[in-house]
Simulated assay, not measured.
Amino acid sequence: MATREVVKAGVFARVYDPGIGESEPWYINDHTVVRDHSERWHLFGITHKEPADPFDEIEFAHATAPEPHGPWTKRRSVLTVDREYGETHLWAPHVIAARGRYFMFYAGGGADRTAAAMNLATSTDLLHWTRSPAGPLFRDGYDARDPMVLRVGEKWIMYYCATSAPTGGHHVVAYRTSTDLLHWSERRIAYTDPTSGTEAGNTESPFVVPHGGSWYLFIGPRPHYVGTDVFRSDNPVSFRIGDKVGHVAAHAAELIADKGRWWITSAGWAQGGVHLAPLTFPNPRTISDVSR
């Protein structure tokens, strides 16, 4: 049931420009922000020089900072596309800390866009990454991408965007579950949008967080490139179009919980880098840090 309570973002400020030190502008698109065990923040993301060329996005940017607001320092790219591994591009990394190391989930593409690879690399220091020797975790379409992993109870849930059938259909947020982050269930659907197609859709960049006894799903671009809708549910794997509770002027949005406050990012093609804004939920209260 729809609610009048609204999730809202404040004013966005640019915190990182990947073009600094380059001879031409660069962009960050889908990205992830994680804090290491020394409390330093790390940003990883799709990167490429302008203008946008998504199928030539073949490396992941890396930057570090003492706080989410920066100052961010550009580091060497951490992964480059591996053609022998079957990758055709590197899209949308998502990094979590678990079991004494870091797990990076990302979309590696492949020759068949109806069976795109969801890949895994691991690291102990966030600097050096090793791809899973077993190959892709699974394959899905159309252009399955934008993974986000969250611990819920005794299982991990991976959300990602896809279509209702691998060859096309309604744009959906799919999900799979795991107990070890290596072996994943068959896919299920957390959200189905009325729109349909194959390539880019409006269920990209899914991000789910718990707050105040509810679950919030952020997806976009909706209805334009710089736009993210927010949906609320009592079930972390079941959202409906009528559950919308907010809209944020952000693209490829990621959420950060730090020092009792929520923040939301925005980035993308021709956006000049990564931007950050404060985020408020209905009935705000003290929150636990879920960004590790």
Rank of each mutant, 00 (worst) to 15 (best):
M1V: 12
T3L: 12
E5D: 12
V6T: 15
K8F: 04
K8Q: 10
A9R: 13
V15H: 13
G21A: 09
E22C: 10
E22Y: 15
P25Q: 07
I28F: 05
N29L: 06
D30P: 08
E39S: 15
R40W: 09
G45A: 10
D53W: 07
F55K: 01
I58F: 00
F60L: 06
A61F: 12
A63S: 07
T64E: 14
T64A: 12
T64M: 11
P66F: 14
H69V: 10
G70C: 11
W72D: 13
W72E: 11
T73N: 14
T73H: 13
S77A: 15
D82G: 09
E84L: 14
E84T: 15
W91A: 01
W91M: 03
P93R: 02
H94E: 10
H94R: 06
V95N: 01
V95C: 12
G100K: 11
R101V: 09
M104H: 04
Y106W: 05
A107C: 05
G108R: 03
G109A: 08
G110I: 13
A111N: 12
R113P: 00
A115K: 15
M118Q: 15
T122E: 13
S123I: 06
L127H: 11
H128Q: 11
T130K: 14
P133I: 09
P133E: 06
P133Q: 03
G135N: 03
R139W: 05
D140H: 10
R145Y: 03
M148H: 12
E154A: 14
I157M: 01
M158L: 13
Y160V: 08
C161I: 08
C161Y: 05
A162D: 02
G168C: 06
H170M: 02
V172H: 03
V172K: 12
A174L: 03
A174C: 02
S178Q: 02
S178L: 03
T179H: 09
L182S: 08
L182D: 02
E186F: 04
Y191I: 06
T195W: 09
A200P: 02
E204Y: 05
P210N: 15
H211A: 13
S214G: 05
W215N: 01
P223I: 13
P223T: 10
G227H: 06
G227R: 13
D229N: 15
D229E: 15
R232T: 12
P236D: 04
I241K: 10
D243I: 15
D243W: 14
V248S: 00
A249H: 13
A249P: 01
H251A: 14
H251M: 06
H251P: 00
L255R: 05
A257L: 09
D258S: 10
W263T: 00
I264S: 03
I264A: 05
T265G: 04
G268S: 10
W269F: 14
G272E: 07
G272D: 07
G273A: 08
L276H: 11
L279E: 03
L279I: 12
L279C: 07
F281R: 00
P282S: 08
R285Y: 07
S288M: 11
S291I: 15
R292E: 11
R292H: 14
